[in-house]
């Protein structure tokens, strides 16, 4: 489903991604962890071409992401993305936020788009907020709307870049619950997070990055019990100690 082969990326002289090789299969949940600045966001953002790669091969859903001849919007409609800061559209209601892309990209009629939106709002537990504006919601509620917005496109892949990092501790759980549910239903998910409990419980695989490289890749039981890399040990000790 997602295939990185010898992918490198530079920002000018700065080498952000170094020889990335990674395969993610359909239905897998892969959690990416690593210290700040290690390239986690960049890696995830390459998958839907919010960032372009400098060399190597990246194939997503059988499409060469960086091929000039592909229709990137066609690929993107199959990939949902959830951001750290939600990025809801502040001038639109929750319902409008969710129905916009289905209506404008998939050309689904308004009535049907609204029904789908309501279905996903129920799923994330806030159908009563359909007509609210984002500014009237708590962080956790906003992030759940963002997830519903992604799901309403019925994507094959969902990308999460630190979806709970901007949330108050008491609302983190409600967002993680939605994500766990999604994982259980077989969604292919790539998640950058510092929530080790979530990683341990939900991930099929943990990918540990440092300084632009993937240093270790292992199932969570194995990774948490017995990390092979010294830097992964140090990182885990630091993060689990608070």
């Amino acid at each position: 489903m997602i295939y990185f082969h010898q992918v490198n990326k530079y920002y000018g002289d700065f080498h952000v991604l170094k020889d990335i090789n990674l395969t993610i299969h359909q239905g897998e949940v892969v959690v990416i962890i690593g210290p700040s600045g290690s390239g986690k966001s960049t890696l995830v953002r390459c998958i839907n071409r919010l960032e372009t790669i400098s060399s190597g091969e990246l194939i997503v859903d059988n499409v060469k992401v960086n091929d000039k001849h592909i229709d990137i919007n066609q690929l993107r409609r199959n990939i949902g993305m959830v951001f750290q800061h939600f990025n809801l559209y502040p001038h639109m209601t929750v319902l409008q936020n969710i129905t916009l892309a289905p209506m404008k990209v998939l050309r689904i009629p308004e009535k049907e788009a609204k029904e789908t939106a309501m279905y996903y709002l129920e799923k994330v537990g806030i159908p009563d907020k359909a007509n609210a504006y984002p500014s009237e919601l708590s962080g956790g509620q906003q992030q759940r709307v963002a997830i519903a917005r992604g799901l309403a496109m019925k994507p094959k892949i969902m990308l999460f870049d630190e979806p709970t990092s901007a949330l108050d501790p008491e609302t983190i759980g409600e967002v993680l619950d939605v994500m766990k549910q999604l994982a259980k239903e077989g969604m292919t998910m790539v998640v950058v997070t510092h929530e080790m409990g979530f990683a341990r419980e939900v991930a099929d695989r943990i990918v540990f990055m440092d300084q632009g490289r993937i240093l270790e890749e292992a199932p969570p039981e194995e990774f948490f019990a017995n990390p092979k890399e010294e830097r992964a040990k140090v990182f885990l000790r630091r993060i689990l100690n608070h």
């Binding site: 993107r76 916009l100 496109m153």
Partner: peptide, 11 residues
Amino acid sequence: GQMEAARSSGL
């Protein structure tokens, strides 16, 4: 982030 969210949804 507004541009990114919208573009990543396929608009």
